[in-house]
Structures are given as structure tokens and as C-alpha cells.
Simulated assay, not measured.
Amino acid sequence: MNFYHPRKGRFTIEEVIADMRQYMEADRSARYKVVIGTDSQTNQQETLFVTAIIVQRVGKGALFYYARKRSHPIFDLRYRIYKETEYSLDCMEQLKQHGLLEVSTDIPVEIHLDVGKHGETRTLIQEVVGWVTSVGYTAKIKPDAFAASAVADRFTK
């Protein structure tokens, strides 16, 4: 899977981790958090999924990357939210498999879900939050799910 940085261009997963490592080593006294979220947009031809990886230097900015994945059009909202959650969790697993934990084992990880207490997705909150927490990550929903609802959403348009 290819990732993109808005100013630096295309990255492999290994290059993302190396760039994250360099970012974190530039200020060792800062606290960091890794945030992953996926959003999707469907039209008659396809569904575009965008997964964002954000390395947040808490209180001091952030670095982010995104990846796009295209699929046949998915009109079923429940299925699409499940795919978004799956892609976010898969992305985190890829980061771990390619050495993210070698950077630091104590970095908190949040998975941001594009569901909220208002609107059609409210009935899915318990299911997807339960899924994310059952594999050991913190789940955030709207309005706190900025990785999905702001960053990833921006690149689905």
C-alpha cells in the first residue's frame, strides 16, 4: 500500500515509519500519540476509502500520511463503516509488523471511527467501538474522531 504526505509525496510503509521515527526523535521530551482513521465516499462508480495516519506531538503539532483504496460502490452504510474500521485496524497492524514498536512501545494508539451519536451511524457505535477496544486500542467517535472525520474525509473529495 502506498501512502502520501501532502508536501513530501509518495511513501512506502517502511518510509512512513522512518519518517515517523525521525519526527519523534527530533523532540524526545514531547509526548506522542499515533492516531489512525478511515473515511469513505461512494458514488455510482466506486467507493473510495482513505486511511489517515497521524503522529501527534501532543500540544505541539502533528505529522500525517494517507492511503487510498478503491472498491466497487458500497451503498450499505453498516458494511461501509465496518470496512472503514477494518482498514484502520489493518493499517495499525501493518505499522506494527514493519517496526513501529521499535520506535517506541509506549506510544498510545487511537483508532478514530467515523460514527457519532447523531445521524445514521449512531446504531453502529457499540459494535465498532467494541471491536476496536477488543483488540487493545482506544476508540474515538465523532466529534473527537478527527483522523476520520476531518483528515481522511478531506482526501475522499
Rank of each mutant, 00 (worst) to 15 (best):
Y65T: 04
T133I: 07
D106P: 05
K60E: 15
L95P: 01
T123I: 15
S71R: 07
G136Q: 00
L101T: 13
G61S: 00
S40P: 05
Q126W: 12
D144W: 12
A147S: 08
H98K: 12
T105V: 10
H112Q: 07
Q94D: 14
A67R: 02
Y32T: 08
E102W: 09
L113R: 06
R68E: 14
K83F: 13
Q94G: 11
G119M: 12
E102L: 13
E127Q: 15
H118Y: 14
Y82M: 15
E86P: 03
E120C: 06
G136I: 06
D76V: 12
E86C: 01
N2L: 13
T38V: 06
G136C: 03
V129Q: 08
I125E: 01
A67N: 04
T133F: 03
T51L: 09
T138P: 07
V129E: 07
K60T: 09
E84F: 09
L95G: 01
R21D: 11
V16H: 03
Q44D: 14
T47F: 01
A30K: 07
Y137V: 08
S134M: 11
I36P: 06
E93T: 10
K96P: 00
S71T: 12
E86R: 04
K8W: 10
W131A: 04
T138G: 07
T121N: 02
I74S: 09
S104H: 05
V109G: 12
Y32K: 06
N43S: 06
K157R: 14
G130P: 05
L101Q: 14
E102V: 10
M24K: 01
A139W: 07
R21Q: 13
N2E: 14
A67L: 11
H5W: 03
V58Q: 13
Q56P: 02
E46Y: 09
R80Q: 06
S149K: 08
T51F: 10
V115I: 15
V35K: 11
A150E: 15
L101D: 15
D90G: 11
R122G: 00
E110D: 15
C91M: 10
I111K: 06
